[in-house]
Design a protein around this nucleic acid. Structure first.
Lengths: 217, 217
DNA sequence: GTAACGCTGTGATTTCCTTCACGAATCTCA
DNA sequence: TGAGATTCGTGAAGGAAATCACAGCGTTAC
């Protein structure tokens, strides 16, 4: 199937839409309008409708979308039907928090193995996840069919860990280390850089005063 | 000085440039070219030069930029000269990891107080940061002049915590909770949504792409 | 039956961001 | 001194993403 290229931002928003749909499933009525999804997810109604075009689920005029069906359609679009196993590298403070965060949340997208260089961390089970030495990445990645990995190591180790992961077949990396990873073009990386994010917030906390000007002009 | 409005992405990249400059300070020569900064930070040379226009530091042709001076100029541009104190709300697994991550890194942008609803967590010191009950947010935010906050609570608590923080004078929020916060227009929020990020990575790990160029959110 | 209403799907438009491309500036070396 | 090589700063072009705006269609009211 030759599909239009879908932007990174759209995929991110679809994930957010699905989350608000799951929340509405328990609380609200069976149908929902684009403007309601928009309000709950911080988007605009037009953007919601345009994003939903890519998943191929159509609402009905004057009735909006069926919550359960739409959530299922987004899931079909975003998720691998067979599930995807995830590896975590770096079991420091942040790594352990990530393990706790994802433990038991999505069976279809679970962290099934953790790796660390420190010998004292190896062969323990943390938040339900076994911790192995770095050297076993190739073996275990092959055994568990791991294509997705999370890097939560110090900055110095991140690139070498990424190289190892990619050699072991990983095609997508969520990188918490504060460096820009060099990866081949068929590997997708997403950086979650807490320092950069905090500096952005700090900057705009001081400079965000355009609103008064806007009302004037 | 009437300055052109600077985009969120540019601020983020400036933070990244500064980081690679700090790293180059110890290892490399005293000057650096835009293409070197670009390679180390995952941008393009043209973008580096354009971003640097906003900070008002000029390099010299054929010599590039003086590493130390450029890093200082970016700091002058990004940072508050008097420093900015940060509050953290939510001292669970993730909150503690955030405290550890930022502990002692930037004296100019330090987490000086933590808050949690659980009585057993308050009045302890975690990674060098004192933990207070939620009810004391107004008092302590005023005393420490806090304008920047990090939310690491469960999703259900995040909006009410945000409201409290904003009422206490906070103007920038780094939100780790998986919800979209409703805030007044003079408050800047940045979402670091680990679930959304991991789902994006999982999606693009499956859908082989030719080329990516990406920064976080 | 039909008129009025409100929401969806999507072409058209606008806005924002990135990349291109080139003049000007600085350095090297003969 | 001047030619050649290299990089910066930035106007202009290009591209991508968000928004607008409206036709089309269920639904409801009477």
């Amino acid at each position: 199937m030759l599909r239009k290229r879908i932007s990174v931002r759209t995929i991110g928003r679809l994930s957010a839409y699905r989350r608000v749909l799951f929340r509405s499933l328990t609380t609200g009525p069976a149908n929902v309008y684009s403007y309601q999804i928009a309000a709950l997810s911080g988007a605009t109604p037009a953007q919601v409708r345009r994003d939903l075009m890519s998943v191929g689920y159509s609402g009905s005029p004057n009735r909006g979308y069926q919550v359960a069906e739409l959530a299922a359609s987004i899931g079909e679009f975003l998720d691998d039907p067979d599930g995807q196993n995830v590896a975590l590298v770096g079991v420091g403070n942040l790594g352990r928090a990530i393990l706790a965060y994802f433990a038991g949340r999505r069976p279809r997208l679970a962290i099934v193995a953790a790796f660390d260089a420190a010998p004292e961390k190896v062969n323990r089970t943390i938040h339900g996840c076994r911790c192995y030495p770095i050297a076993q990445i190739p073996t275990i990645a092959a055994r568990e069919n791991i294509r997705v990995a999370v890097i939560a190591t110090p900055a110095e180790a991140a690139q070498s860990v990424a190289d190892t992961l990619i050699a072991a077949g990983v095609r997508g990396i969520l990188n918490f280390a504060p460096v820009s990873l060099k990866v081949p073009p068929w590997v997708y990386t997403e950086d979650l850089d807490m320092t950069m994010a905090l500096e952005k917030v700090a900057y705009f906390a001081r400079h965000e005063k355009q609103q008064e000007r806007d009302t004037q002009s």
